[in-house]
């Protein structure tokens, strides 16, 4: 907790108004908790001198903040136009079959959360899949099983993905 508070203070120093640090603070809180539980909004609100309700209202606006628990790994398949034209529809269904869930959903073993997302900005190298905030491009249905095998044997990324 103290560590998260200190990290948020370092972000606040970059802005003339501490409210500006709310997105960095929410990113840090999500790295800390794995998602954004109610106590995350208490922590961010306290550090920024904002109400937890305001922090929740901001977080709920964005797709990258998880307001519910997620699996150890998050796999996000772009199904926007450029990727959809080159087969991300088949790719998404392959992930769903292999994981036994419909997107958005988490596999029964709690290992992998599958989400369908909008354009990731990799349109020329599609289909694009984002795995724990890292892009994998030219992703094909036959790449699904090897990736999932790897993810199932890998622990949750604990530190910053950047």
């Amino acid at each position: 907790m103290a560590e998260l508070y200190e990290a948020i203070q370092r972000e606040i120093a970059k802005y003339p108004d501490r409210r500006g640090a709310i997105l960095p603070a929410l990113h840090l809180a999500q790295e800390h908790y794995g998602w954004l539980p109610p106590e995350a909004f208490e922590a961010v609100g306290e550090a920024l001198d904002l109400s937890p309700a305001h922090c929740l209202s901001v977080a709920s606006f964005y797709d990258m903040f998880f307001l519910q628990p997620v699996g150890d790994h998050v796999v996000e398949v772009c199904t926007n136009l450029s990727c959809a034209l080159v087969g991300s529809d088949r790719l998404l269904r392959q992930f769903e079959r292999e994981l036994g869930v419909h997107a958005p959903g988490t596999s029964e073993d709690g290992k992998v959360t599958l989400r369908r997302v909008e354009c990731l900005g990799g349109c020329g190298w599609g289909p694009v899949v984002m795995v724990d905030e890292q892009y994998q491009e030219h992703f094909q249905p036959e790449d699904v099983a090897p990736l999932l095998t790897e993810l199932r044997s890998t622990p949750r990324p604990s530190e910053s993905h950047a």
């Binding site: 997105l23 606006f61 964005y62």
Partner: peptide
């Protein structure tokens, strides 16, 4: 120079929405 990461919202590419977001509000 400060790098400020967004969090997944197309509308934040619109200038006033981007500024709302940077100012600590919902990106509207």
């Amino acid at each position: 120079i400060v790098v400020h990461r967004g969090a997944g919202a197309y509308i934040c590419g619109e200038e006033t929405a981007l500024l709302s977001s940077l100012n600590g509000d919902r990106g509207q």
